[in-house]
């Protein structure tokens, strides 16, 4: 099984000072799969994601991409395969939306190389796909929180990576845009890529993810298909909540009961 995984973490730990953030945590991601990382605040979801992208190095254990240790892969080659979508993004200069998205082509360009027409076409197509074409010329800092989140997703998509690692990509979005973003991530998996996504909304997690990994205090509490992870005992232990689901299964209580009616 391990040979088939695109991205794998093998017993990674992360310690900062005397605090243990992650302890001996493993993860596997396969082609075509959307893996949801869920768990309470401070469980280590974002830290795990940063280790998977190579932003942080684990204190012990290792991450492999296509079977090769992540640290041995050239920075730019790694960047072409792993797209990262941060929790929040600020631009330090008022550059336009289009230029923010075009940053996604950097891993494909040499230091001296100019963007090719093909690069520009990819940027334009990504802007269209994410419904941002009309905002293309707007300075990034003048956008609303939700618009910024979508621009950052477009930036990650413009890399055209195999794997997207997204940290709460829908946190700032309205209902319709939540679905739009989740569908874009889903499409990434259906096109042969894979996604690891940190989510707080368990309904979205159940609806869109193939597998869920529930973290608690830096360890895996449960991993598997949504039906096996979302149960009374796990929710009680992880979130200290009891779900009222009289007459229906617990999974039905987390069913997504709305769809998009059309293009927003």
């Amino acid at each position: 099984m391990a040979d088939l995984s695109l991205l794998a973490a093998d017993r990674v730990s992360l310690r900062l000072g005397d605090r243990t953030i992650l302890s001996s945590l493993s993860l596997e991601l396969h082609a075509g799969e959307m893996l949801g990382l869920i768990g309470p605040n401070g469980a280590g979801k974002s830290s795990l994601l940063k280790i998977l992208t190579g932003i942080h190095n684990p204190s012990s254990g290792q991450v492999t991409l296509h079977g090769s240790p992540l640290q041995q892969i050239d920075d730019r080659q790694r960047a072409r395969q792993l797209g990262y979508l941060a929790q929040a993004g600020t631009a330090h200069w008022p550059i336009s939306v289009e230029r923010v998205v075009a940053l996604g082509r950097i891993p494909h360009l040499g230091n001296w190389q100019q963007a090719t027409p093909a690069d520009r076409a990819i940027v334009a197509e990504t802007l269209r796909q994410t419904g941002l074409a009309e905002l293309a010329a707007r300075p990034f800092p003048t956008l609303s929180g939700g618009e910024k989140a979508r621009v950052l997703l477009a930036r990650a998509l413009a890399v055209q990576p195999t794997i997207i690692l997204a940290d709460e990509p829908v946190a700032a979005l309205d209902l319709s845009h939540q679905l739009e973003v989740m569908e874009l991530l889903r499409a990434q998996c259906d096109n042969g890529g894979a996604v690891v996504v940190v989510l707080h909304d368990l309904r979205l997690a159940v609806h869109y993810c193939d597998r869920l990994q529930l973290l608690l205090a830096g360890e895996t509490l449960a991993v598997g298909d949504p039906g096996s992870v979302i149960n009374d005992e796990n929710l009680q232990r992880a979130f200290s909540v009891r779900v009222r689901h009289s007459g229906q299964s617990l999974l039905d209580a987390f069913a997504l009961s709305w769809t998009r009616s059309g293009q927003s």
Partner: peptide
């Protein structure tokens, strides 16, 4: 432009 973490992932 988008910060150090973002640059690292690029």
């Amino acid at each position: 432009t988008l910060g150090e973490e973002s640059a690292r992932t690029l």
